[in-house]
C-alpha cells in the first residue's frame, strides 16, 4: 500500500509542479469549447442545445491530450524499468498511475465545467447534469486511454498514434455520456438508464485497463 500511495503522490506532485501538464489540459478544454461558437455561430439557443455534446467532446480531447505523457516520461528516464521490476504487481502500479492522472488532469476538467457551461448558456440543472456525467465517465476515458498510452510507449510512438488507437475505444463512453446529459436536461429517456450504463463502462474499464496496460508494458519493453 505504501508503494502505491508513494506512486500516486509522486505523479500528482510532478503534474502540479513547474513543467507539469495538469492545468494545460484545462486550458485546452477551455480553448476547444471557445472555438465551437466560431464554427457554429453565436446563436445561444443552438449552443445551449449542443452544449452537452460540446463539453463532452472537449473533455474527451483534453483527457486524450494529457494521456500522452502517462508512461512516456517514466519510460524516457528509466523509471518504468524499475516500476516493472518492483514487488508491487504491475497491474496495481498501472491503476495507481491512472488514478493519479485522473486526479491531476481529469478532476480539474470537471471543476471547469460550470464556467464553460456559462459560456454555452446552460442553466444550473444542465451544467450539473453534464458535470455529473463527466464525473462518472472520465475515469473510463483515462483507464481505457491508458491502454493506448502503454501501447504507444512500447512502440516508441506517441501523439497521433495514441489518438487513433484510443478514440474508437471511447465511442461508447461518449454515446452514453451525452445521452445521460441530454436525458437529464430534456428527456424523454429516463436519466437512470444511460447513466447506469456509463457507470458500468467506467467500472469495466477500471478492471480491464490496468490488466491490458500491464500486459502490453511487460511484453513490449526493450
Amino acid at each position: 500500500m505504501t508503494a502505491l500511495a508513494a506512486l500516486i503522490r509522486r505523479d500528482i506532485s510532478i503534474a502540479l509542479r513547474v513543467g507539469g501538464g495538469a492545468l494545460i489540459g484545462v486550458l485546452f478544454f477551455l480553448t476547444v469549447v471557445v472555438l465551437m461558437p466560431f464554427a457554429l455561430g453565436p446563436d445561444l439557443p443552438l449552443l445551449t442545445r449542443l452544449g452537452p455534446a460540446i463539453l463532452w467532446l472537449g473533455a474527451l480531447l483534453a483527457s486524450l491530450l494529457t494521456l500522452d505523457r502517462l508512461f512516456t516520461a517514466d519510460h524516457e528516464d528509466g523509471s518504468l524499468d524499475l516500476i516493472v521490476m518492483g514487488r508491487t504487481p504491475l497491474e496495481l502500479a498501472c491503476a495507481a498511475k491512472a488514478l493519479a492522472h485522473w486526479l491531476a488532469a481529469g478532476l480539474p476538467l470537471i471543476v471547469a465545467t460550470p464556467v464553460l457551461g456559462l459560456l454555452l448558456n446552460l442553466d444550473m440543472a444542465a451544467t450539473s447534469a453534464v458535470a455529473l456525467t463527466l464525473l462518472a465517465g472520465t475515469p473510463a476515458l483515462t483507464f481505457t486511454g491508458m491502454i493506448g498510452a502503454a501501447l504507444a510507449v512500447t512502440l516508441h510512438r506517441g501523439g497521433l498514434l495514441l489518438a487513433v488507437l484510443v478514440l474508437p475505444l471511447s465511442i461508447p463512453v461518449l454515446i452514453f455520456g451525452v445521452a445521460a446529459s441530454e436525458a437529464a436536461i430534456s428527456g424523454p429517456v429516463p436519466f437512470g438508464a444511460p447513466f447506469s450504463i456509463l457507470c458500468a463502462l467506467s467500472l469495466v474499464s477500471l478492471v480491464v485497463g490496468p490488466f491490458a496496460a500491464a500486459a502490453s508494458l511487460r511484453h513490449g519493453l526493450d
Binding site: T31, V34, P37, P42, L44, L119, N121
Partner: peptide
Amino acid sequence: WEWDARLTSVLILFL
C-alpha cells in the same frame, strides 16, 4: 454570457 464581439475578443485575449 453573450457572444458579443467585444467580450469574445477579450475572452480570446484571456486565453
